[in-house]
Design a binder for these strands. Structure first.
Lengths: 200, 200
DNA sequence: CCGCGAACTTGACGCAGGTCAAGGCGCAGC
DNA sequence: GCTGCGCCTTGACCTGCGTCAAGTTCGCGG
């Protein structure tokens, strides 16, 4: 998944536009654990993930870290609200593994947006996508049990479970690590019973 | 709050653009209880509220209606995901009181979007606004207790509590009507004690 | 003006999931 | 290769909120 193909999944970008837009991106690396953007500060970059995994979380005053999502190869990343509104970031972006990213500065991005309408169109589509995605997540959090939410993640994003610590999965699913552990045990025994007894 | 000033709160619209855009909007009325858009069908319109109140809810298969939000005078309304993506609507939009709205068809809106870049810019800003707003709501649902969520609504949108039935407020806050009733009683007695004992 | 149904309240009770505490296990650093 | 520290698990217990079941009040249609 190249940067360009990631863009063109949402909107076509002509060669001449790409030729001036692409050089504005620069490669950066972050070691595991590093905070790429810190809540309370401003987000000066939009990122594209080449390799690694990151988590975004809201640092609750009581000390909990509410995980809002993950990004990995082929995703755009960053604290979008701060990047777009200039308000301080509400959440922190952190590398969960050594990560290679591309990034573009806010100034370069906004300039390109003004200059090339296709990029503005792209951003509109991109924003709509993630907005509608989060709306669905909101409904799931409000209607599904802990077991259902985990089962859903398990079927829809099985790779994620390998990539990130369970405590972060738990937080992302809106439950404690203890609860997730028990959910997994329940489902494990279910799986076993089904598999062992019905084996070919 | 006129339609134009509602637009221009987010992006400027030149007179000549407005002159061709504004006639695409037509007034419509809905009686209390009418479903303006039904989940599962397509959303062919974007609405602007002149008067009345509406609720948007996700109809859960088990019969519950998960209220996602309300709209009233000065708001844009409609099932945006279906309006923009052409997928069937996930939620239902219903008038909670007799309502006067303006509406524009998807075809007219998309044509205007293509023709006038300022409208596309407006839509981007609009989408970002509601997206970032819902992100905050997600965090609140995950971190605040029932009491805190009600208290927050009470201070931030006191008018809403007068306008719509408590069962809808309860659902919007992610709790049952019984729980909201108890929350209100608790806070009422708190208020009394505070007020009566500290009165001037 | 009456009566009925919807909305709200209140109480009794149950349970999903949180909290607290104690191990076990695996891996990173010395 | 050992050691220490996160991470995951497991158990015991607790509690906020949901569920169920009566009332009560109020607005609206006949």
């Amino acid at each position: 998944m190249t940067l360009r193909s990631a863009f063109e999944r949402l909107a076509p970008i002509p060669d001449d536009v790409w030729a001036v837009f692409e050089p504005a991106w620069e490669p950066v690396e972050f070691a595991k654990g590093v905070r790429i953007t810190q809540a309370g500060e401003h987000e000066p970059y939009l990122y594209f993930v080449l390799d690694g995994v990151q988590r975004m979380f809201f640092p609750h005053p009581d000390g909990r870290e509410i995980v809002l999502g993950f990004s990995y190869a082929g995703d755009f990343s960053g604290v979008f609200d701060s990047f777009r509104t200039n308000e301080p970031a509400l959440s922190t972006l952190q590398a969960l593994a050594d990560s290679q990213l591309l990034r573009i500065s806010k100034a370069d991005f906004n300039a390109a947006l003004d200059e090339h309408r296709c990029l503005e169109r792209w951003l509109l589509t991109f924003t709509e996508r993630i907005f509608f995605g989060r709306l669905k997540r909101e409904v799931h959090l409000l209607t599904m049990s802990a077991d259902e939410r985990y089962l859903r993640l398990l079927t829809q994003s099985p790779h994620l479970i390998q990539l990130v610590p369970q405590k972060d999965i738990a937080s992302y699913l809106g439950m404690t690590p203890e609860t997730l552990s028990r959910v997994r045990r329940r489902m494990g025994s279910l799986r076993s019973r089904g598999t062992w007894s019905s084996g070919t």
